[in-house]
């Protein structure tokens, strides 16, 4: 990593660890951005999958532990904290979701805690884990899964699929189509209606995932740019340290807020799928 230009440094930090079939090299890990691109769709980001599933498993493990220990008696501090999180989610779901569906609250809980954990990885200094991986012979390592649009789109498309499923289940195929085609203008203008409502429907998953991705990607980028200061000598490094601390404090807000927004909007979309116009 010594003889790198700033551009190479940044590009290195923004490259995922890709496993896939290269047209020439066969199955393997991509060692450059060009190789990764050549692998096309049938490749997988090992780092994104590893960190997201690892953090998801951590979330499930911690909450499962609480679920096993949960009693109606006096809670331990750990249990109290978990219950506090659960009640926070439950309050939000009750306040926003008007229908009756037992799946919504677990979805909200999973999304909030999982995204929060994935976002929090952004606060780990940008070079620690990638450099450690590099020393172990792994060429790339992006530890913030939510800076990978695959992760955010993966979640938002799952939410979108649920929205469509419940829209059809609650309103029927005809009702759902009617909602798309027969408003806001009179019925005979249905192509315009369909166009407008179709865009509004499709914009939901796109905006949902791009909002999260964009915020975290930009935040990560600023951390990388700040990290560049460390190579500029003592005074630049000192300033970089101060900036990194300041940005991390500000980023705590973004980390939490984006997780919360993703959760709330998911509840809102599912609520819209359940309610008749």
């Amino acid at each position: 990593m010594a003889a790198q230009t700033s551009t190479e440094y940044i590009q290195h930090h923004l490259q995922n660890l890709v496993l896939g079939f290269h047209p020439e090299n066969g199955l393997g890990i991509a060692h450059s951005a060009a190789e990764a691109r050549a692998m096309g769709f049938w490749a997988i980001h090992l780092d994104t999958m590893l960190w997201s599933m690892g953090l998801g498993a951590l979330f499930l493990w911690v909450f499962r532990k609480a679920a096993i220990k949960a009693t109606s008696g006096v809670p331990t501090p750990f249990l109290n904290f978990i219950e506090w999180v659960i009640e926070f989610i439950d309050d939000n779901v009750r306040g926003t979701f008007t229908g009756k569906n037992d799946l919504v609250a677990p979805i909200a809980l999973t999304l909030f805690v999982w995204i929060l954990l994935m976002n929090t990885m952004d606060l780990v200094p940008v070079d620690w884990i990638p450099h450690l991986a590099y020393l172990l012979g792994v060429p790339y390592m992006k530890i913030v899964a939510t800076t990978d649009p695959n992760a955010t789109f993966g979640m938002s498309l799952a939410v979108f699929a649920l929205t469509i499923y419940y829209s059809i289940k609650v309103k029927g195929a005809k009702g759902f189509f009617g909602e798309l085609a027969f408003q806001p203008f009179p019925k005979f203008l249905f192509p315009i209606n369909l166009f407008l409502e179709g865009i509004s429907l499709l914009s939901k998953p796109v905006s949902l995932s791009l909002r999260l991705f964009g915020n975290l990607y930009a935040g990560e980028m600023i951390f990388i740019l700040i990290a560049l200061l460390y190579s500029g000598g003592f005074w630049w490094g000192l300033m970089g340290g101060a900036l990194q601390w300041g940005w991390a404090v500000f980023h705590l807000l973004i980390v939490t807020l984006q997780a919360f927004i993703f959760m709330i909007l998911t509840i809102v979309y599912l609520d819209m799928a359940h309610s008749h116009h």
């Binding site: 923004l14 995922n16 890709v18 896939g20 990764a36 691109r37 692998m39 096309g40 769709f41 049938w42 490749a43 997988i44 980001h45 994104t48 999958m49 997201s52 599933m53 998801g56 979330f59 499930l60 909450f63 499962r64 609480a66 679920a67 659960i86 037992d102 799946l103 609250a105 677990p106 979805i107 809980l109 999973t110 999982w114 990978d148 649009p149 695959n150 992760a151 789109f153 993966g154 979640m155 498309l157 799952a158």
Partner: peptide, 27 residues
């Protein structure tokens, strides 16, 4: 920053997490 199989992997992981949460954590 390419869209690839990770997208589907993430969706499946999400679905599994939600299922686990629904079954063993929330109730």
């Amino acid at each position: 920053m390419n869209i690839n199989l990770t997208l589907i992997g993430q969706s499946i992981a999400f679905a599994v997490f939600v299922w686990f949460c629904l079954k063993y954590i929330w109730p």
